[in-house]
């Protein structure tokens, strides 16, 4: 397959996944901001989210004060903000457009239709029916896009680059979602969960569609350690770091070319750490440290995949 085509497929999938996870992060932050608390606390929460999305400075260029409405406007509709859902869906569609001949018609139409609908949304319209409904819409469009991908695309290289993009992005994004929470929720002892905290943790679980899963897996109280274990180490949890890395590794190893051996090794190494890791030892070294380090390694993998597969080889190579 053309390197350029692979590049567009990879980024098409990454931007769709990013749009979905941005909706998830905004959703959980919005829900938490509705809990009884002081205005300062609410501001800290939104500020923390912007920080983890690495968009704090960009936000302050555009807005003075952190208010829920300003952050939502910035993170959803702002055309100047490359991380806004608007921009993610536009980039998804632009990448799909560039390779529409490689996609099935259904997949192209899904992405095109998502973008056409997104253009019709406005902040006022969204606030009227509640941001929750909008976030739901973004998630469902992403679900649909993934379902159409799996349900219609030939299982060849193109599908693998799409899947690779999806899971590399998800690994990064789930780590960020965890960071947002662990920023102001320092896990205490296992049996000491306050009522207020309970809502915080359950909101986090809801944001990654893991609330029911948690109940089923642990059949017990919600504790920070288990939440972390579920979202980091449980490979049967579809949005966990372990599951994402398993998918990254297996798709990557099937795409293998003459240059990619080291990239595969690094992905495999990261995957096996998650496979054999224990949450207690991760916490001992500091959870936030761990997540930051994990995201650095995901970033590095992304660069390597680009170099190995996506940047056109020169005439000399």
């Amino acid at each position: 397959m053309l390197s350029r085509t692979a590049d567009h497929l990879f980024w098409m999938a990454r931007y769709m996944e990013r749009a979905e996870n941005t909706a998830r992060i905004l959703d959980v932050t919005y829900r938490l901001s509705l809990l009884p608390q002081s205005e300062a606390e609410v501001q800290t929460m939104w500020g923390g989210m912007l920080k983890i999305m690495e968009l704090e400075d960009a936000f302050h260029v555009r807005h003075e004060a952190i208010t829920p409405e300003a952050v939502l406007a910035f993170m959803i509709f702002d055309r100047e903000n490359p991380g806004s859902i608007y921009r993610c869906l536009r980039a998804t569609r632009e990448n799909a457009h560039a390779v529409r001949g490689t996609l099935t018609s259904e997949l192209w139409e899904t992405s095109n239709e998502t973008w056409l609908k997104m253009r019709d949304f406005t902040l006022a319209k969204m606030m009227e029916s509640g941001p929750g409904a909008f976030f739901e819409w973004v998630k469902y469009r992403s679900h649909l896009s993934r379902g159409v991908t799996i349900g219609t695309m030939l299982q060849d290289e193109s599908l693998r680059f799409i899947r690779l993009g999806t899971f590399l992005e998800r690994a990064d994004n789930t780590a960020r979602i965890l960071e947002v929470k662990y920023l102001n929720l320092l896990p205490g002892s296992e049996d000491d969960v306050h009522t207020a905290d309970y809502y915080q943790w359950s909101a986090l679980l809801h944001s990654v569609s893991a609330f029911e899963v948690y109940r089923r897996v642990y059949r017990d109280q919600i504790t920070p350690l288990r939440v972390a274990e579920l979202l980091v180490l449980r490979a049967d949890m579809p949005r966990s770091l372990a599951r994402s890395m398993k998918e990254v590794y297996s798709n990557l190893s099937r795409l293998s070319n003459v240059r990619s051996a080291e990239t595969e090794r690094l992905a495999g190494e990261l995957e096996s750490h998650l496979h054999f890791g224990r949450i207690e030892s991760i916490f001992e070294g500091g959870f936030r440290q761990y997540l930051e380090n994990f995201r650095d390694r995901i970033f590095d993998l992304g660069c390597r995949i680009s170099d190995d597969f996506l940047i056109p080889t020169t005439a000399e190579s």
Partner: peptide
């Protein structure tokens, strides 16, 4: 394949496209 100019190159009068598995 749908190619753009940048996806192609010529070596010894033969045209190649740049793919994920090489020329």
């Amino acid at each position: 394949e749908l190619v753009e100019g940048q996806d192609l190159f010529v070596r010894e009068d033969q045209v190649f496209m740049r793919t994920t598995q090489g020329p």
